[in-house]
Design a protein around this nucleic acid. Structure first.
Length: 760
DNA sequence: TGATTCTACGGTCTC
DNA sequence: CGTAGAATCA
């Protein structure tokens, strides 16, 4: 098979590149997956490189699966032993540590290859515990913030001692202590968090020279996808794996770097040529995905950034449709517009797939509601995933305890679930004892039972619990994976607890557990061990749940990376939401938001619709707050945009459902009795409901040359950014202003102190 | 000890 | 609005 056929010259030279470092700057939709897969196939077929000597690394399981499939397809499905290894960073590291991690114990006391993985929920639970023992609560610092602070420190190779030593304030000193305890607890539980998986793999390879050489020799060719999103540990892993050769090909696009907040270092890609001075650089700038309008609009937005290598995508495709821009009255109206436009589009193009992208997960709710009104099926990616459900986490916690009873987080989760008479006071006793004697909870329980330290009641309950765990542990090496799980559901009483529960949710919980048993059975058929099953459960990502065939998908822009749809909606384009309020006062973060915008827009193949709402409520009950259109909307060249309005006559009316379709949709409607479909009806709907929102008559705030800040003016505040004045009390400098700042809510300010300026 | 009710508070993105 | 933790009751 000719793997060069049908490629453009740049793609071709990338595929033909054999030895030495290669930097492939691949713009959105430039066919990079094709290049990677063809290069792998080309290495194997034309250069006789054995498949297993090639390692390709991606970020998500989904990307890895897809890449693997395409490679295997190109190679005509070679046997298992000849296939290249395609893996995510994290699962590669887990595999490395489980298989060859013995010597990590030299530098990480207590480590064994039966370690458990702590995901971020476990991390938060752990931090909560540490806080409780230190007499702290979230007022000191939010748990999640501590968790990401620790992660940040870790990924910059700072030990608790480093932080402690360089600390200049009591707060940091305290954090260093918390960090130290956190690390101590992980070691005691023989657990690794996500950062550790990478960090400890790197440390292992640096520590164990034989192993490093062995891996370096085995993987003669290394490829890294989405290189712009690698962090420091991933970068160092690359260095360690290429120490025996320098055959590394990285593929990335600095304009799509959107994970700075979790430690991705855009410098990795910007500095690749410095790290590998003889690196070959190839740019893929021809886009095969989108129309010219979409491409030009996205490029124009990202051109406002300064931190980039600079490239301009081009396409042979036609102009295509202009980009639709819809200014909604409020978030509900926006959602209805989206649902309506989807309905209309699918009526004419039933085979098309549609995605609705948003910045934050909570935005999905209203859009879901709107879609349900049409009876339209949709798939939501993210939010609460299967593996985050309480019943799933409970059962997985049981399994984790079977692997490592010292996994105290897992133990704590299940010790009294279902309730078996081991209450708060007993648990506190155990924790105190464990802390004082530096034991895991499990060891503490056993020791305390030996010493008869409990009340008669607690004693009996705990003995029963210990016996339960031991009985289940006995099954581990004797039974099928799914059978172990089934027995766990039974013997722990968890199943009975759910059956006894008459609430409507318990039924779906039981169904979920059955689903988990099925997953275990499948894993068993694939030959997975209990540990591997748990690894997979810990490493699943939201994006993995995406079904390409779903006609309508709802997901965050982050999750959309690497995917494409004929029709894409980007919702909630408002200051404070997108760009997010957290990024308003940092140019670096603002640039990342802009890249996210670029990613979102370039997902669309032929039709792109942007929307924003003039009023949106942040909390369910609260007042709707005035919003300002996202700056990104202004960065799109006006000639690429067509404004969609509900009262627009003639020209755009074909965008909205015709009445017959509306009625059809209403008939399919399973969720409400109301027919709220075409946008003509939406205005009527608001009128009926008498919602005190956006009077359509209210003019858009006009720029004011005159000094006094009036209602409707947009002002600029040093901290909160741009906001709209809703109310004014008093006169002159003493006037009190009520201003709605997107992302911060309503603020009352005194004009003369607030330091606000009228926006032009 | 366990279940239920009440209240206060607050929300980016994720392997 | 949804959730977590406190308070309360059985």
């Amino acid at each position: 098979m000719d793997f060069l056929a049908g490629l453009n010259p740049q793609q071709r030279s990338a595929v033909e590149h054999v030895e030495g470092p290669l930097l492939l700057l691949a713009g959105a939709g430039s066919g990079k997956t094709r290049v990677i897969t063809h290069r792998i196939a080309h290495l194997v077929e034309a250069h006789r490189v054995p498949g297993p000597a090639i390692l390709a690394v991606t970020f998500t399981n989904k990307a890895a699966d897809e890449m693997r499939e395409r490679v295997l397809h190109l190679l005509g499905s070679p046997g298992h032993h000849y296939a290249p290894l395609v893996s995510t960073f994290h699962s590669f590291c887990v595999r490395l540590l489980r298989r060859d991690g013995h010597r990590l114990a030299d530098i990480r006391p207590g480590f064994t290859r039966q370690f458990n993985i702590y995901d971020d929920d476990d991390q938060v639970t752990l931090i909560k515990q540490i806080f409780r023992h230190a007499g702290l609560d979230e007022k000191f610092m939010q748990y999640r913030a501590v968790s990401s602070w620790i992660s940040h420190a870790k990924s910059h190779k700072q030990t608790p001692q480093d932080v402690y030593g360089s600390s200049k304030d009591p707060r940091t000193t305290r954090l260093a202590t918390i960090y130290d305890q956190y690390e101590g607890r992980l070691r005691q539980a023989n657990a690794l968090d996500f950062d550790d998986l990478l960090l400890e793999s790197v440390r292992l390879l640096q520590h164990d020279d034989d192993l490093r050489r062995q891996y370096g020799r085995r993987f003669e060719f290394l490829m890294i996808d989405e290189y712009q999103d690698t962090n420091r540990s991933q970068y160092e892993l690359m260095l360690a794996l290429t120490s025996e050769h320098r055959n590394v090909a990285v593929v990335g696009d600095e304009d799509q770097s959107i994970y700075g907040w979790r430690g991705a270092d855009i410098r990795n890609i910007l500095d690749f040529e410095r790290d590998y001075p003889n690196a070959r650089v190839i740019r893929l700038e021809q886009n095969y995905r989108s129309t010219k309008n979409i491409l030009e609009a996205a490029s124009a937005v990202v051109a406002h950034n300064t931190e980039r290598k600079g490239k301009w995508l081009w396409t042979e495709a036609g102009e295509g449709e202009k980009i639709g821009l819809y200014e909604a009255l409020d978030a509900e109206n926006e959602a209805l517009f989206i649902a309506d436009a989807i309905e209309h589009h699918l009526a004419k193009n039933p085979a098309d797939r549609v995605a609705v992208l948003y910045r934050t997960n909570f935005q999905s709710r209203q859009i879901e509601e709107a879609l349900r009104r049409y009876g339209r099926k949709y798939l939501v990616i993210g939010g609460f995933s299967f593996y985050q459900r309480a019943e799933i986490r409970d059962l997985l916690a049981y399994l984790r305890v079977l692997v490592t009873p010292h996994d105290s987080i897992a133990l704590l989760r299940i010790v009294n679930t279902p309730a078996r008479g081991i209450g708060k006071t007993t648990i506190e006793q155990i924790e105190q004892f464990a802390l004082a004697n530096e034991l895991s909870l499990w060891s503490a329980i056993r020791r305390m039972l030996d010493e008869h330290a409990f009340s008669a009641r607690a004693d009996a309950a705990l003995r029963e619990f210990v016996k339960l765990i031991e009985d289940l542990t006995d099954l581990v090496n004797r039974e099928r994976l799914d059978e172990i799980l089934r027995r766990a559901i039974d013997l722990t009483g968890y199943g009975r607890m759910l059956e006894a529960d008459n609430s409507p949710e318990s039924e779906s919980r039981i169904a979920n557990l059955e689903e988990l048993v099925n997953a275990a059975a499948e894993a068993f058929e694939r030959g997975e061990t209990l540990s591997e099953f748990l690894d997979h459960a810990a490493l699943v990502a939201d994006a993995d749940g995406l079904d390409e065939r779903a006609p309508v998908s709802l997901l965050t822009m982050h999750n959309a990376k690497g995917l494409e749809w004929p029709v894409v909606f980007v919702a909630g384009m408002e200051e404070g939401l997108f760009p997010h309020s957290r990024s308003l006062n940092s140019t670096g973060e603002m640039e990342e938001e802009r890249r996210l915008c670029y990613v979102a827009m370039t997902r669309a193949q032929k039709r792109l619709m942007l929307s924003w709402a003039r009023y949106r409520r942040r909390f369910g009950g609260g007042q709707p707050e005035a919003c300002i259109a996202s700056r990104f909307l202004r960065e799109v060249p006006a000639e690429r945009i067509v404004k969609l309005r509900q009262d627009a006559g003639g020209r755009h009316v074909d965008l909205f459902s015709e009445r017959r379709e509306v009625r059809d949709a209403a008939n399919r409607n399973l969720y409400t009795g109301r027919a709220l479909n075409s946008l003509e009806n939406i205005a009527q709907y608001f009128a009926e409901k008498g919602i005190a929102t956006p009077r359509p008559a209210q003019p858009r705030p006009q720029p004011q040359a005159s000094k006094p800040a009036r209602q409707g003016n947009i002002v600029n505040h040093p901290k909160f950014g741009r906001g709209t004045i809703l109310r004014r009390e008093g006169q002159g400098e003493d006037a009190k202003l009520t201003v709605s700042f997107p992302g911060y809510g309503l603020k009352k300010l005194v004009a003369k102190y607030a330091g606000i300026k009228l926006d032009e």
